[in-house]
Design a binder for these strands. Structure first.
Lengths: 231, 231
DNA sequence: ACTTAGGCTTAAGGCTTGGTTAAGGAAAAT
DNA sequence: ATTTTCCTTAACCAAGCCTTAAGCCTAAGT
């Protein structure tokens, strides 16, 4: 029973808080882990792969923001939901929190009832997040194309193609939802990342190379909107 | 591009504030509408159905709280996020604000960077709110028409039509409220954006092309007023 | 019947947007 | 250190969407 419950990692430097919140979470049926600082938190997170991390912002040595950024760097923990705990009135940290990749923000003092419903909502979101990416499948087949995420390999018919990273990821994105039009913005943010800035023509060039390799009929342009993959 | 961006309605009695914040929001890619008092705000809100309303608390005649309560009475605007703008230190108004149905509370003076990340978070919340209720549908069906926002595709009967961007968005707008008459102003503001200026005949031409493609019987002209979609 | 207001139609150009190519720099492989 | 591959940029080109302009049509008012 325990192992099927949701795992929550609780991080705060004050033992009283750990005690109090931890007790309430356990009572609600969660599997609770605790640490008292950021560094241990990262270790523990890698170890137990929690569904949700509750992270105090104000901690000595390594604060919550920093810890969050560190956690976000870990591929394995990509789906983990992170929520910050903070004292009322620290507006500033809220902003930093979202920028660091946090998903929510809970102000202390914490009322158990509030916390519990908030966490329920967060875990619901977790499920959706995971479902959206859905197919963790390493192999995708579409028409005459076979894509192997793990091996970074694409087969067209019976020919093997080796695509460079950017081209591969672009293809993967488009093919993940056939017929859906991806805007340039979407493509940038999913393939290049939020804060990388590259010129407008960069996508075109990659699209062109893809068309060259997998056949132009599959990738269609919707002018003024974006690109899509069709069978 | 315009109509697919998030719409923000900004309400403040000081033109300077409208100018400053408005400029920054536009730069961040939002579609911005402004009014200088509560009564106009309610009108504008009904018209453009914004995702987010930024509402100054201190305004002559009808203050932000009152405006908020009024807006909350409107069923159509039930999903709209409302955030208050207020000078630091007016703590009492914060409580009143939440009681009136506000979702957040932003203190002036406003730093652009702070505002932008705050708004990003708010709009994220909007999406969840809407998704929970299952709105924001990507597929709309009306009579013999099927419109797929995601695929940017219109099906009439069993024929696939690919509409250019402006035509597509125009159709989307009209069909979003069948039988409602959209004035030319409304259409300009929602499809072209607030600050784009184009001649009067432009809409006619697009309407004509739409009629040509989806059948003239669906789109009716109401002389002197505007256009509407009927079954 | 004439006038006028408002919308319809058409075609032509401008202008936005995407395609193409080549070249230079960065990164990785040898 | 050298070579090769990959990514990005820039310049130019092509396509077609968007807008405009001008004349036509219809309905309503004079």
């Amino acid at each position: 029973m325990e192992s099927s419950a949701h795992r929550i990692l609780l991080v705060d430097d004050e033992p009283d808080v750990l005690e109090f919140i931890g007790y309430n979470l356990k009572k609600s049926g969660y599997q609770v882990y605790t640490t008292q600082n950021g560094r241990d938190a990262i270790e523990k997170a890698k170890e137990v792969n929690p569904h949700l991390i509750l992270l105090d912002v104000m901690m000595p040595e390594m604060d919550g923001i920093e810890t969050c950024e560190e956690i976000r760097k870990n591929e394995q923990l990509h789906n983990t939901i992170i929520a910050f705990l903070t004292a009322r009135g620290e507006d500033y940290s809220q902003i930093a929190g979202f920028e660091a990749g946090g998903d929510d923000y809970i102000t202390k003092p914490i009322k158990p009832r509030v916390l519990s419903s908030r966490i329920k909502a967060l875990l619901k979101r977790y499920k959706e997040k995971v479902k959206d990416q859905g197919e963790d499948e390493t192999i995708i087949k579409k028409a005459d194309l076979t894509i192997d995420k793990e091996k970074y390999l694409v087969q067209k018919g019976d020919k093997d193609l080796v695509l460079p990273k950017k081209e591969f990821e672009l293809l993967l994105l488009l093919i993940s939802k056939p017929d859906k039009v991806f805007t340039r913005e979407e493509i940038f943010s999913r393939v290049w990342g939020e804060d990388v800035v590259v010129g407008d023509r960069t996508i075109d060039v990659h699209i062109r190379k893809l068309r060259e390799k997998i056949g132009g009929e599959h990738i269609k342009t919707v002018k003024g909107v974006g690109y899509k993959y069709v069978e």
